[in-house]
Design a protein around this nucleic acid. Structure first.
Length: 483
RNA sequence: GGGCCCGUAGCUUAGCCAGGUAGAGCGGCGGGCUUUUAACCCGUAGGUCCCGGGUUCAAAUCCCGGCGGGCCCGCCA
């Protein structure tokens, strides 16, 4: 800690935290792209290295991720200012300089300092030498600002994740979707099977939930008469934390009136390939050792065909007894008791090897009874017009031809409620208010949800979801240590 | 929820198996040095060995419990 230096500066009448800069800074990025030798300009940034050579000192300055070298000489700025700099400016400080753009003997673009100002005193030095990454994963994630500060690759990956979200917005805006906001705090959660976070609303003296999906409120907006809506937002699921899961994670959901799940497949293909190309310049990526091409069209694989071909189970022929036997064999227990559609879903998840779902694949037509928010298939009511998109073995999106028959919706909710009573805590809770909305009429609608963190992982080749979340969830530890 | 592994100076770590005064490199600090960029040279300070308990004459080291982290499995996006 360098609190003493701060006090000394204040005693000298120098504010270590001035309100503004003295020399209007030119972004270092711009200086590097269009170097104009001989031009005098201001630069600001964080001191990343100081190399002293007696009467001559080189300083590396980092500004918004771009590095430039400064050169300060005793002769150039005078003995007093030169020594003040060496005495008071440390690694990690922000400084603002004015000087001339030049090249050193070795040809490096450099600003020869004519005047300078300390603009922020850092009381702690950077934890590692510049150019070295922080190795301890706990420090990396807990003090992520340091990880980003010290490691250009980390900075780059998170930057690309942020840009990816921007590109998704641009794409959706371009397709005429309106970006909307819906409640995060909800009286009834829904739209997915998951354990919610519960919170208490003091003003109402009621227990509410943090949303587990965006679905049911976005559909209400379709009922309301908006034809194309989307939302990018956090969902919250009170479940485990691992390489694929963070309790709060980002979803993009979109709903389009007069569309169906076929339209959603085309939307998904276009969206993913477009944003991947915008961020990386290519639709190709390497995720967990697999080369993947995100260019459309993606393979369509019927759920039933996948089970038949890859697991040897024919969902149209197999008896319930056989399915129960298969569940036992695979140590699967269904929480709310046996139900054919849920059994098939579990068997699919357990038995379909990830190796079959590496290249982008729409698995289509899931069992109707396990898809309570989906319209039954137009040709075969045992199945629902639903798809999940798998890429790199990871479930990335889930989409439906949305169920808009309020009576059927009510029946599905009742069936879910039954399962809940029998111990399936993740069954969908009954949402009367939503059924009532459907009673007022929701047009035929296609809808999709895309896991944005996972999309970022695949596009950016990240092995852990923590890599693409700026501040992933970790256990609380200790708290700040007062000195 | 289950299994495996890790925790020593700001950072990276040696020492642990086989108990006996905790050592190094980098960084920091002081000095030198006018073209360096992992600068260099000389000097120097810096430790709750994650926490608590036990065994022992003696614990960083062995044992138990806890805290924090990582990986894998189960479940889920």
């Amino acid at each position: 800690m360098r609190k003493a230096l701060r006090e000394k500066l204040i005693k000298e009448g120098i504010n270590p935290y001035p309100h503004s800069v003295r020399f209007k800074p030119t972004p270092v990025k711009d200086i590097l792209t269009r170097p104009q030798l001989g031009v005098k300009l201001g630069v600001a940034g964080r001191v990343a290295a100081i190399r002293r050579h007696g009467g001559l000192t080189f300083v590396d300055l980092i500004d918004d991720g771009a590095r430039i070298q400064l050169m300060i000489t005793k002769k150039g700025i005078g003995k007093e200012r030169y020594e003040w700099f060496l005495k008071y400016v440390d690694m990690g400080d922000f400084i603002n300089v004015f000087g001339e753009v030049m090249r050193t003997r070795k040809g490096e673009l450099t600003v020869r300092v004519e005047d300078y100002a300390l603009i922020t005193k850092a009381l702690r030095s950077p934890p590692v030498k510049w150019g070295h990454r922080i190795l301890d994963p706990e420090v990396r994630y807990r003090k992520r600002y340091l990880d980003i500060m010290m490691t250009p690759q980390v900075r780059e990956m998170l930057l690309k994740r942020f840009l990816l979200v921007q590109e998704i917005r641009k794409f959706m805006w371009g397709r005429g979707f309106i970006e909307v906001e819906t409640p995060i705090l909800q009286p009834v959660y829904g739209g997915a099977e998951a354990t919610p976070f519960v919170t208490h609303i003091n003003a109402l003296d009621e227990d509410w939930y943090l949303r587990i999906s965006l679905e049911l409120y976005l559909k209400r907006l379709i009922v309301a008469g908006y034809n194309k809506v989307f939302e990018i937002g956090k969902n919250f699921r009170n479940e485990d934390i691992d390489a694929m899961h963070n309790p709060e994670f980002t979803m993009m959901e979109a709903y389009e009136a007069y569309a169906d799940y076929n339209d959603m497949m085309r939307l998904a293909e276009d969206l993913i390939s477009t944003v991947a190309k915008a961020v990386n310049g290519t639709t190709k990526t390497v995720f967990r050792g697999n080369e993947i091409d995100l260019a459309p069209p993606y393979r369509r694989l019927r759920f039933a065909d996948a089970l038949r071909e890859y697991a040897g189970i024919d969902p149209d022929e197999a008896s319930d007894d056989l399915l129960k036997e298969k569940l036992r064999e695979n140590h699967i227990t269904l929480k709310g008791g046996y139900e054919r559609g849920k059994a098939l879903m579990k068997l699919f998840d357990k038995l379909i090897g990830r190796e079959h779902l590496i290249q982008p694949t729409f698995v289509i037509d899931y069992p109707a009874s396990a898809s309570p928010l989906t319209k039954p298939h137009r040709e075969d009511p045992r199945y629902a017009e639903r798809f999940e998109l798998y890429i790199g073995g990871v479930e990335l999106a889930n989409a439906y031809t949305e169920l808009n028959d309020p009576v059927l919706q009510e029946e599905y909710f009742m069936a879910e409620e039954e399962r809940r009573k029998r111990g399936d805590e993740e069954a969908h809770p009954f949402d009367w208010d939503f059924v009532e909305a459907l009673q007022f009429g929701m047009p035929p609608t296609g809808g999709i949800g895309v896991g944005i963190d996972r999309l970022a992982m695949i596009v950016l080749g990240a092995d852990s979801i923590k890599e693409v979340i700026p501040f992933p969830m970790l256990k609380k530890s200790g708290g700040p240590k007062p000195e």
